[in-house]
Every structure is written in C-alpha cells, then in structure tokens.
C-alpha cells in the first residue's frame, strides 16, 4: 500500500469535545476510504487546546515554541488536512484562526482539505461556507466540496445512520480521492537558496 499522511486539527476546548468526536469520525472514514484505493493514511491529531499558550506566544515573539513548531511542520508536510472548529459567535473560534494565522501562508497550497464544524444549533451551519471556506481559499487549500457540520441534534439517538454519517462518509471519500490524485507532499527548506547571487545582483 502507498503511504500518505493526514493531519487532523481540532479546535475543541472541552474534553471530550464534540469537535474532537467529529474530527475522529472524519479521520476514521478518510482512512477507510483511502484504504479502498490502496493508500495507507497515517493520522496525526493536533489538539489546539494543548497549544493555546504556544500560539499566543508565537503571535507575540514571532517564533513557535518547540511543540507548536512540530504541529505546524506536521500540517505543512501532510498529504491531507481535516480542520474542525467549534462555531463561536457565528464563526470559527479565535484559537482556530490564530493557529492558521501563524501557519506559513504557503503551507496549505493545493493541499486536500476537509473543513468541518460543530455548534449547539443547526442555525450556524453556513458558517462553514461563509467563514471557513474563504479562509482556506485564501490559503489556496484544495477544499473538498462537502463540508461537514454537526449540531447537538446530530449526536442524538438516530444519528448513527442519519444525515451526519452520510456527510462524513461522502466528505472523507472526497478527501481520500484528492489525496490519491496527488504526488506525496515535499516540503521546501526555508533556509535553502532559491536564486543565485549573480541573478539577485542583476535583477534587484
């Protein structure tokens, strides 16, 4: 089987959080969908709660502490991304946004990305389309058409075979297909010279 990597970013704050539950469902479904195409996805989950102080410190000092650096590198090097946030005040959470604020602006370019969100009520479901999708469009991520929203209702008794399950499977299959279509990600070294000094001198 081909080996690929999947980074899962969860901005849930409580433990356990429904945001993490949704992230895990999506990751499990993506692994299963990829396996049918002969791809073994290795999943790394990044809980932003654990990195909240590091993210604030990065905003203030301009560099990431070691644990945050590892998380940012994991996302950049991943072949696919699942990003899940709770909806706070009609949009992604501030912590979620701050993480993507400190991520390199090119880190998600053409990266297959599945966006998902949780909230207390289904009235927030379009936040995915008016808040998350533009954010990832700016970062030039390849966001799959199906986004997944889960309100409190979706975790109820009938949800196991309900709409949420269907969307999780569809979105994850779309993500797996986009990962499969692409070559494995290779990360460029930020310290590597990309231009000769003679050219720099000629064309300042």
């Amino acid at each position: 089987m081909n080996q690929r990597t999947l980074a899962v970013v969860s901005a849930g704050l409580s433990q356990p959080s429904s945001t993490r539950l949704l992230a895990d469902q999506l990751a499990t479904a993506a692994v299963a969908a990829a396996a049918t195409s002969g791809i073994q996805l290795t999943v790394t989950v990044i809980e932003l709660r654990d990195l909240a102080h590091d993210i604030a410190n990065h905003l203030l000092t301009g560099f990431p502490p070691a644990a945050l650096k590892e998380a940012l590198d994991t996302v950049e090097a991943a072949d696919g991304l699942i990003a899940v946030t709770p909806i706070f005040t009609a949009s992604y959470s501030g912590l979620f946004k701050s993480f993507f604020d400190v991520l390199d602006k090119d880190a998600l370019a053409d990266k297959p990305t599945l966006i998902a969100a949780t909230a207390g009520t289904a009235r927030h479901s379009l936040s995915l389309e008016h808040a998350l999708r533009p954010l990832f469009a700016y970062l030039r991520a390849a966001v799959v058409p199906t986004s997944v929203f889960a309100a409190s209702d979706d975790w109820g008794a009938d949800s196991a075979d309900g709409m949420l399950r269907t969307r999780v499977d569809r979105a994850s299959a779309e993500l797996a297909r986009e990962i499969e279509r692409r070559d494995p990600v290779s990360v460029t070294d930020p310290f590597a010279l990309t231009v000769s000094f003679e050219d720099l001198l000629k064309n300042p």
Binding site: P190, F191, A192, L193, V195, F197, L200
Partner: peptide
C-alpha cells in the same frame, strides 16, 4: 535572522 539571501550576500 532567517533570510538566506543575506547569508549569501
């Protein structure tokens, strides 16, 4: 701090 072009210069 981290511009390779300046190390090159």
């Amino acid at each position: 701090i981290r511009s390779p072009e300046i190390a090159e210069q």
